[in-house]
Amino acid sequence: MSFRIFDIAGSAMSAQSARLNTVASNLANADAVTGDPDDVYKARLPVFKTIMEPGHQDSAGVRVLGIVESEAAPEKRYEPGNPIADADGYVYAPNVNVVEEMVNMISASRSYQSSVDVMNTAKDLAMRTLTLGK
């Protein structure tokens, strides 16, 4: 039983948990309005990339290349009563799409679970291999 399988599943788990972290940040800041459109929170998205190790053609882990900010325009709300509204009475809400974030959350947690299953199976097989002949 190769132990590289644990690295592969582990890399996937850390990538998916980074994705869950960005979802948590986005949802937490979904209603953080400001009076300045340049200062508003922008949705964060992780970028996944396959890691190919030279000499190990079978192994392909995954890595978070970086976190990018969404380019979508912030939501403009007319709230003249809000103390932080700009001169025209507008406040700016983050470009976080709550539905998209929920979908991302479900997808990330499912993928995380798959990797946990892979790791458990690999562990069982490795244990059985180690006790071969006993």
Binding site: R4, A12, A15, T50, D58, S111
Partner: peptide, 14 residues
């Protein structure tokens, strides 16, 4: 097993 684990790990990689 290793190849399939890699496939599952990269299920969300473009």
């Amino acid at each position: 097993l290793e190849l399939i684990a890699a496939n599952i790990a990269n299920a969300d990689t473009p």
